[in-house]
Amino acid sequence: MSTQKSARRAKGSVEENALRLETDKAEQIIDALNADLADAYVLYHQLHKHHWNVEGAEFHDIHVFLQEVYEDVEAAADELAERAQALGGIPHASMDALSEAATVEAEDEDVYDIRTSLANDVEMMGDIIESYRQHIELAENLGDYATGQILREQIETIEEHAHHIAHYLEDDTLVTESAMN
């Protein structure tokens, strides 16, 4: 149990940073990064759910693929949080704060067929891609080219995963209709 009586910093506060980005500009970018961080964790948990629940003839390949994707998303979330901290902010860490900041909504707790699950994943990825594009523009308009570059690198990975999921959703498959019933 902590013996500290008061917080060292209040949530939502922004300090001066060693990166020499003005505090008012940093605050806008930190807000965007915290939204991206929250969205990453929603996507992470949804992908993990699908990884746990995938069944069928293509189970193994999809199971392994989803693990790779959620591991990439988790690494991206860590990078977003570290960037927000470097800019003088406090990255969201509680489930309440992450839920409040998220701009995407996870599917419910029910388990769906893998096609539906993957379609939900690619839809969420598309929403995140659109948000990243806006945040890249915001960061660069505020003179934070490094955050723009971080988001650019992450968007490439998300787009690649969305593209691969789209391939899984194509009609061409070795599994016949009678084998699926």
Results as ranks from 00 to 15, higher is better:
residue 85 Q to G: 09
residue 66 L to C: 10
residue 85 Q to C: 11
residue 77 A to H: 02
residue 43 L to F: 07
residue 113 D to T: 12
residue 39 D to P: 00
residue 71 E to L: 08
residue 11 K to Y: 04
residue 18 A to W: 11
residue 110 D to C: 06
residue 27 E to K: 15
residue 6 S to D: 08
residue 47 L to C: 05
residue 5 K to N: 13
residue 5 K to E: 14
residue 123 E to Q: 14
residue 47 L to P: 00
residue 31 D to F: 04
residue 74 E to F: 12
residue 102 A to Y: 02
residue 23 T to F: 01
residue 133 R to K: 14
residue 13 S to N: 01
residue 111 V to Y: 06
residue 114 I to K: 03
residue 123 E to I: 00
residue 76 A to D: 08
residue 61 D to M: 04
residue 95 M to F: 14
residue 133 R to S: 12
residue 29 I to F: 05
residue 70 Y to V: 06
residue 79 E to V: 07
residue 19 L to P: 06
residue 109 E to L: 08
residue 31 D to V: 01
residue 104 V to F: 04
residue 5 K to G: 05
residue 21 L to H: 10
residue 102 A to M: 03
residue 128 I to D: 05
residue 23 T to M: 12
residue 110 D to V: 14
residue 58 E to I: 06
residue 55 E to N: 08
residue 31 D to R: 15
residue 95 M to C: 10
residue 32 A to W: 06
residue 85 Q to F: 08
residue 99 S to D: 12
residue 7 A to Y: 04
residue 20 R to S: 15
residue 66 L to T: 06
residue 135 H to K: 10
residue 126 G to V: 01
residue 82 E to D: 10
residue 109 E to F: 11
residue 142 L to I: 07
residue 62 I to A: 01
residue 59 F to Y: 12
residue 5 K to F: 12
residue 123 E to F: 13
residue 6 S to L: 11
residue 2 S to W: 01
residue 119 A to D: 15
residue 15 E to P: 00
residue 131 S to G: 12
residue 138 L to I: 09
residue 73 V to M: 05
residue 6 S to C: 03
residue 110 D to L: 12
residue 134 Q to G: 14
residue 13 S to M: 01
residue 3 T to G: 14
residue 62 I to H: 01
residue 124 M to V: 01
residue 65 F to L: 09
residue 9 R to I: 00
residue 124 M to L: 13
residue 30 I to W: 02
residue 86 A to K: 02
residue 47 L to S: 08
residue 22 E to K: 15
residue 15 E to H: 07
residue 53 N to P: 00
residue 141 N to Y: 02
residue 87 L to N: 06
residue 68 E to L: 06
residue 75 A to V: 04
residue 89 G to E: 04
residue 86 A to G: 07
residue 31 D to H: 14
residue 44 Y to R: 05
residue 27 E to P: 02
residue 77 A to Q: 03
residue 103 T to Q: 12
residue 124 M to E: 03
residue 78 D to M: 08
residue 10 A to D: 09
residue 53 N to K: 09
residue 72 D to L: 02
residue 121 D to G: 04
residue 55 E to P: 00
residue 121 D to W: 02
residue 46 Q to C: 06
residue 111 V to E: 10
residue 38 A to P: 03
residue 129 I to R: 08
residue 131 S to R: 13
residue 85 Q to W: 09
residue 6 S to F: 13
residue 30 I to S: 05
residue 29 I to M: 05
residue 105 E to R: 11
residue 60 H to R: 11
